[in-house]
């Protein structure tokens, strides 16, 4: 089971991203592509299926442009 931390988000580094688009293929529930082929990400990961999809997207990215960010424990 994937642990879901409230407020977790899939993030993209738009500098590293080259619009390859594999993320949207493996995780279409949390990634859409814009008209130019660059990812538009879900606001929040709300359940285990979202988190699993986000991790698939992170692994699939050949540019290592994606990461899952959990809210800062200190803030």
């Amino acid at each position: 089971m994937s642990r879901v931390v409230a407020g977790s988000r899939l993030r993209v580094d738009p500098v590293a991203c080259e619009g390859v688009g594999l993320c949207a293929q493996v995780a279409d529930r949390v990634v859409e592509l814009d008209r130019w082929g660059y990812p538009v990400l879900a606001a929040d990961l709300v359940d285990g299926a979202d988190v699993r999809a986000a991790r698939r997207a992170v692994r699939a990215c050949p540019r290592r442009a994606l990461w899952v960010e959990e809210p800062d424990a200190s803030s």
């Binding site: 738009p14 500098v15 991203c17 619009g19 814009d34 130019w36 082929g37 660059y38």
Partner: peptide, 9 residues
């Protein structure tokens, strides 16, 4: 000229 949404948008 680094980020797609800016380069094309």
């Amino acid at each position: 000229r680094q980020c797609g949404p800016c380069v094309f948008g």
